[in-house]
Amino acid sequence: MKVLAIAGSNSGASINKQLVTYAASIFENAEVEVVDMNQFEMPIYKHERELEGGIPQQAKDFAAKIDGANILLISLAEHNGTYSTAFKNVFDWVSRIKDRAVFNEVPMLLMATSPGGRGGAGVLEAATKRFPLHGGNIIETFSLPFFNDNFDKSAQKISNEEKSSELKTKIQKIATLESILQK
């Protein structure tokens, strides 16, 4: 089973990257790849750019990573209630690939975290409404509020037992579903 873990942030200290990396580590017997959004930095999408130069190779490479995965783990940074510009730009470019649904119906665990009590609720709401329109097969969602209180940075894991158990249950559900689909 191949798990593609995506943090929707280009920050070197991204708490969403820490969360998605931890979540990916919970999968047993899986090949895991954690994506760095900085590898997919492209000019900001503009229709004229697309007409002049076509789709950037980075967008095609990102789409290929999605296509090669059995499970997507996506943890989105929330910037003013929605996705970060870094994630949105990649999303926009990939959506322009002819005859392509961005997420290609790959089963997905959609997550978010933040230092505050809402745990990325705004971005999760935006994504759960938008992603299915672009081939997003969201099986579960997970929110970790108060990241600095609920995540042990030295151990690189969720320290809040209730939230840790919730995440593990959701990962087990999606892993079981994927193993059934592979048969």
Score class of each variant (00 low, 15 high):
78 E>D: 13
78 E>G: 13
79 H>F: 15
79 H>S: 11
81 G>V: 09
82 T>A: 04
82 T>H: 06
82 T>G: 10
82 T>P: 14
82 T>V: 14
83 Y>A: 00
83 Y>N: 10
84 S>I: 01
85 T>R: 12
86 A>C: 04
86 A>W: 08
87 F>N: 08
87 F>M: 05
88 K>Q: 06
88 K>D: 05
88 K>S: 10
89 N>T: 01
89 N>M: 05
90 V>K: 03
91 F>P: 04
91 F>A: 11
91 F>E: 01
92 D>M: 02
92 D>V: 02
92 D>R: 00
92 D>G: 02
92 D>N: 04
93 W>H: 00
93 W>L: 03
93 W>C: 08
94 V>D: 07
94 V>K: 06
94 V>W: 00
95 S>V: 04
95 S>R: 12
95 S>H: 06
95 S>D: 02
96 R>K: 14
96 R>C: 03
97 I>G: 03
98 K>Y: 12
98 K>V: 04
98 K>S: 10
99 D>Q: 05
99 D>E: 15
99 D>I: 00
99 D>A: 07
99 D>T: 09
99 D>C: 09
100 R>T: 13
100 R>I: 02
101 A>P: 07
101 A>C: 08
101 A>M: 10
101 A>E: 14
103 F>C: 02
103 F>V: 05
103 F>Q: 01
103 F>A: 02
104 N>V: 04
104 N>C: 11
104 N>R: 14
105 E>Q: 15
105 E>T: 06
106 V>P: 07
106 V>R: 11
107 P>F: 13
109 L>G: 12
109 L>M: 09
109 L>E: 10
111 M>C: 05
111 M>W: 02
111 M>E: 10
111 M>Y: 04
112 A>H: 03
112 A>C: 04
113 T>Y: 05
113 T>G: 06
113 T>N: 10
113 T>R: 14
113 T>E: 02
113 T>L: 11
115 P>E: 06
115 P>H: 11
115 P>Y: 14
117 G>C: 09
117 G>H: 07
118 R>V: 14
118 R>F: 15
118 R>A: 13
118 R>W: 14
119 G>N: 07
119 G>L: 14
119 G>W: 09
119 G>Q: 03
119 G>I: 04
120 G>D: 13
120 G>T: 05
120 G>E: 12
120 G>R: 13
121 A>W: 00
121 A>V: 11
122 G>A: 07
122 G>S: 09
122 G>Y: 06
123 V>D: 13
123 V>Q: 08
124 L>P: 06
124 L>Y: 00
124 L>S: 07
125 E>D: 15
126 A>K: 08
127 A>E: 12
127 A>K: 01
128 T>Q: 15
128 T>L: 01
128 T>C: 13
129 K>A: 15
129 K>V: 07
129 K>Q: 14
129 K>R: 15
130 R>K: 13
130 R>Q: 13
131 F>G: 03
131 F>M: 11
131 F>C: 08
131 F>D: 07
132 P>L: 06
132 P>T: 00
